[in-house]
Simulated assay, not measured.
Amino acid sequence: MLFRQYLHTNPVAASYFFGCGSQSQGVVVDPLEDQVDFYVKEAQDLGMNIVYVIDTHIHADHVSGARKLAEKTGAKYVLHSSADTSYDFTSVEDGDELLAGNTLLKFLHTPGHTPEHISIVVSDKRRADEPWFVLTGHTLMVGDAGRTELAVSVEEGAKDLYQSIQKITQLEDHIELFPGAFSGSVCGRGLSGKPSSTVGFEKRHNEALTFDNEKEFVGFMTSNVPPQPEGFKERRKTNQGK
């Protein structure tokens, strides 16, 4: 399997390029608009064809480059079926799977940060059927969970997020965890500058995972909420095509 993590600083965000090198089928997740040509060049340099472009959610902190990248490469643009957009996309539901060569993607619907949020559990079938890593977007990050009030009320989002986190923490402890943001992002609070972890390490050391019930978790997520990013409503609408 080929795997690349790209750490962006303006805005602070992480995007990903991974897939099956032997069959030259690649996947790009959460691309930024001003980096579209970069992903195209990466694909050319790596000898890969981009077959899927995925947004884990409708972003509010930056303008997505996913639709533009999909148009340039002929890839399918993937979102959860509940995404409220003015354009067509390839929809996935909780539990759906897609193949990119020998790379298997299983989608988990993980609302909370936004209602349409998905996480992606990835397996390299040339090595094993079991998952290798999970891309968690802004659901669970290294050191915290994603803020919950950029698309719905903070309480509603926090309740959904509590249930979503249970799906991720049911994965095996050794599975690597790659989030959509890291320290400096407006979408979390105590985020680590280390942009990857494991499910097991976060279960042991992430404060957001220390609560045994929904009420306590919601109390944690609705306190000390950082200021909302300027222009987030407009960026979300732009990414919805509205």
Rank of each mutant, 00 (worst) to 15 (best):
G112T: 13
Q25T: 06
D94K: 12
V12W: 02
E97F: 09
S123R: 11
L7E: 09
H109G: 06
V12G: 02
Q35K: 15
N49S: 14
A43C: 10
D61M: 00
H57S: 09
Y52W: 15
V122D: 06
D34R: 09
H113M: 11
L32H: 08
A66H: 06
G47E: 10
V78I: 13
D30M: 03
K72Q: 07
L98P: 03
K106G: 00
H113P: 04
L46F: 12
A13P: 01
S81P: 00
E33R: 11
V51Y: 03
L98Y: 09
H117R: 14
V121C: 01
A13N: 08
V28R: 06
I54T: 09
D96C: 02
I50P: 10
I120A: 07
D34C: 03
H59M: 04
P11I: 02
G19Q: 13
D30C: 08
A83G: 00
V63W: 05
N102G: 01
F18W: 10
D55N: 15
L99T: 10
H80L: 03
V27F: 11
P111V: 15
N10M: 08
T114L: 08
F38L: 15
G95L: 12
Q44T: 06
D30Y: 09
E33M: 02
A66N: 07
L104C: 01
V40D: 08
V40Y: 11
A66V: 06
V40G: 03
H113E: 11
Y87H: 07
M48R: 10
P115A: 14
S22E: 10
F89S: 03
H117D: 10
A14V: 15
A70I: 02
M48K: 13
V53A: 01
L46I: 01
A13Q: 06
E116D: 15
T9K: 11
T56Y: 08
S81A: 13
F38W: 15
G101T: 05
L69Q: 04
Y16I: 07
T90F: 11
A14M: 10
G74C: 03
L99E: 12
Y16H: 07
L69F: 10
L79W: 06
V53H: 11
V121K: 05
T73C: 09
F17Y: 14
T110V: 14
H62G: 00
E42A: 14
G65F: 04
A14N: 12
F38Y: 15
H62D: 00
S24T: 06
I54R: 02
T85H: 07
T73I: 06
R67M: 11
V36F: 12
K41L: 13
D94P: 03
A100Q: 04
S22T: 08
A60V: 10
I118M: 14
Y6K: 05
N102V: 00
N102K: 13
S123P: 08
K72E: 05
G101I: 06
Y52T: 01
S86F: 07
K68P: 00
L79Y: 13
E116F: 15
E33Y: 08
E116S: 15
V121P: 02
I120R: 13
F17G: 02
T85K: 09
V29Y: 06
T110P: 09
G26V: 08
D45C: 06
L7P: 05
H80P: 00
E71Q: 14
S86W: 04
A100R: 01
V29R: 08
L79R: 12
